[in-house]
Amino acid sequence: MLKPIGRYILLMLRVFKKPDKVKIFRKQLFTEFQSLGTDSLGIVAIISVFMGAVVAIQTAYNIDSPLIPLTMVGFTARQSMVLEFSPTIVSLILAGKVGSRIASEIGTMRVTEQIDALKIMGINPPNYLILPKITAAILYNPILIVLSIIMGLFGGWLACIVTQLVTSQDYISGLRYWFEAYTIFYALIKTVVFAFIITSISGYFGYYTTGGALEVGRASTKAVVFSSIFIILFNLILTQLLLA
């Protein structure tokens, strides 16, 4: 139990060193922006639109009392997307997409001796391979989450218009009702922590892969499972710390 934690901490100490060449780090960072961030735009947008639509429809159908105004649909959609759906659910989806990719990429490099080749050249492999991924995710995931919030709210609006359950005016006034900017800050803090969890845990499982193709697959699965568990755990901790 303690051995993997110790290994993870030691790995992170090697990751967070000054890059050997800043120019090469910058180049890798932009490559990771593309592969970890831009390539996820499509899936994040689609999921967010449908999540927002479902939240809006479910809320509208559950408002029975005439005392509850229909503006609550917009309000609920906004609060759900900002507080929970976008930062947590999208991060869980990214743990699956990005986490498995990182673990399998680094794991394959390990079993094909590419990491040994880096080490023999005198390069610090964790720093070279994992730091750009962590940095890219920490910088890019907040953009993805803001996009997810926007797309989710748009999805809710679209569902209201199409189903004619709530008027556009009611929905938009609900969105504006009792808005606290702190909730966005809370969502972004969670996103940054989750981005670190996804990339560092996946990097860890990839880096310590031993064996062949089967083990690379196992490392990839473990990366997704453990990233998801830690996202859920830290979701609780951060919610308690930031909202209580």
């Binding site: 394959t108 490099m109 094909t112 001796e113 590419q114 040994d116 080749a117 080490k119 023999i120 050249m121 005198g122």
Partner: peptide, 15 residues
């Protein structure tokens, strides 16, 4: 290590 070169069994070229 910068004075070392190594040829690995599988080549270990960066894919």
């Amino acid at each position: 290590r910068q004075e070392l070169g190594m040829l690995f069994q599988g080549g270990a070229l960066f894919d």
